[in-house]
Amino acid sequence: MTPLLEISDLTAFYGASQALFGVDLAVNEGEVVALAGRNGMGKTTTIRAVCGLATARARALRFAGRDLSGVAPHKIARLGLGLVPEGRRCFRSLSVRENLLVAARKGPWTLARVEALFPRLAERRDQSAGLLSGGEQQMVAIGRALMTNPRLLVLDEATEGLAPLIRHEIWSAIRALKGESLSIIVVDKTLSELLPVADRCTVLANGRTVWTGRPADLDRDMQVRYLGV
């Protein structure tokens, strides 16, 4: 079976400085893959490269059977890549509802289903997204990506800096999405929450993939060496 997303030997640059030196990553249909690694090891750059937001080169960079190199970001998104960017970036002056509808595409995810997943968003429907709490803004960002009805959801640091109660809500939403067999890439620093959700885990260090396997096989030594636990 060919994976939904297949990346091999991905390199990327920020201006003159190289940020990625050879990332390998694969996501199969219906799989949740954890992308782990310390700060600055290339997780976000990898995601930006996949979304067409960073100039990158790769031996293979394929999504849903299509080569992504040189494809414009909006076209990549339309192939079914739903990005939830780092730092819960809502459109602040738009209402919650407008945020959810602005990029919506036809499919199983509707406003009603997103509001069922995050009941708080139904309560805040007509508020400006900029006035929401951090956790609620994160819910908007996830909902907004779901409304594009993606084949692969990419969550970049979805729970960073949020209060425990809100983190809990977001993680249960992610588990619910996994339950519906949505393919997901999750980037997160909290391994205790990340690993139980993931089917597979890919670890980055210094812009390279250093390990891929089942979360259960990620031993203590690896965790200390690459993840700083």
Partner: peptide, 23 residues
Amino acid sequence: SRFGAALQAARQNGVRLASLGVE
């Protein structure tokens, strides 16, 4: 309208809008 929302979203962050599939 949705068009107006997209236009305002493009003003706030065009790249973010593009990454959601709207040019």
